[in-house]
């Protein structure tokens, strides 16, 4: 299995993501720079990590979504290559149009950095088959702009098509319908605000994120 982690100026979870993909997926993993126009051939997974790409200028993820490498990511996603966007990565995927909706300022204004309890809503995506629907998992969140918003029609469609992957059990940031993570229509693009790459080994304080990476290895091997 071959994977790439995209690095933007201001990414800060890129190395955590790299280690998670390398160790929990067992993938041959490499970094890709935001200015690259091409991705390495034969990728089985593209990870867009968290951080503050381009200093969160204009809107979180707005500048990164227009960077050269994202044109290649959009094309790869259209071919069915799995794309995982976490935190700033989720913001970038919505700004790039790969996922519907937008991530707005947390309803309580504060930056939130804490463990969040999530409910696995759909355990039938390439990213969530390591869980069972209804599982409660603890995954850290660390964001200022994690308040998911989409119009009612979009939300109804997401819910109807089973595209809500994770929901906050205790809605930490005001997201509509408590949405913490969604997949695209093809099921191969997942965006989520919580950080599964920060819950891989016991030293992290929890290992509930590991199944996400481990099941990717099984699905994509």
């Amino acid at each position: 299995m071959k994977a790439a982690v995209v690095q933007f100026p201001g990414s800060n979870c890129d190395r955590d993501m790299f280690v998670a993909v390398r160790d929990a997926c067992g993938a041959d993993t490499q970094f890709v720079w935001h200015g690259d126009t091409d991705l390495p051939g034969g990728l089985d997974l593209i990870a867009i990590p968290g951080g503050f790409s381009y200093g969160d200028y204009l809107r979180s993820g707005a500048m990164a979504a227009r960077s050269p490498v994202m044109q290649a990511v959009v094309k790869a996603a259209a071919r069915g290559v799995p794309v995982l966007g976490v935190c700033n990565g989720f913001q970038i995927l919505t700004e790039a149009g790969l996922l519907p909706g937008a991530l707005m300022r947390n309803s309580g204004i504060d930056f939130i950095c804490r463990d969040a309890l999530l409910t696995v809503e759909n355990a039938d995506t390439p990213f969530t088959r390591g869980y069972a629907a209804g599982d409660r998992i603890t995954i850290p969140v660390a964001h200022h702009d994690g308040n998911y918003f989409a119009d009612d029609d979009t939300l109804d469609r997401l819910e109807g098509e089973g595209r809500v992957a994770f929901r906050y059990t205790d809605n930490v940031n005001g997201s509509v319908r408590g949405i913490a993570g969604i997949v695209n229509e093809g099921g191969n693009v997942l965006g989520m605000m919580p950080h599964p790459e920060r819950a891989i080994v016991p030293l992290h304080g929890g290992t509930d994120g590991r199944a996400l990476f481990a099941c990717l290895a099984r699905t994509l091997a």
């Binding site: 204009l58 707005a62 989409a150």
Partner: peptide
Amino acid sequence: RKLLANTVI
């Protein structure tokens, strides 16, 4: 449309 505003919100 392409950058300055996010027309979703």
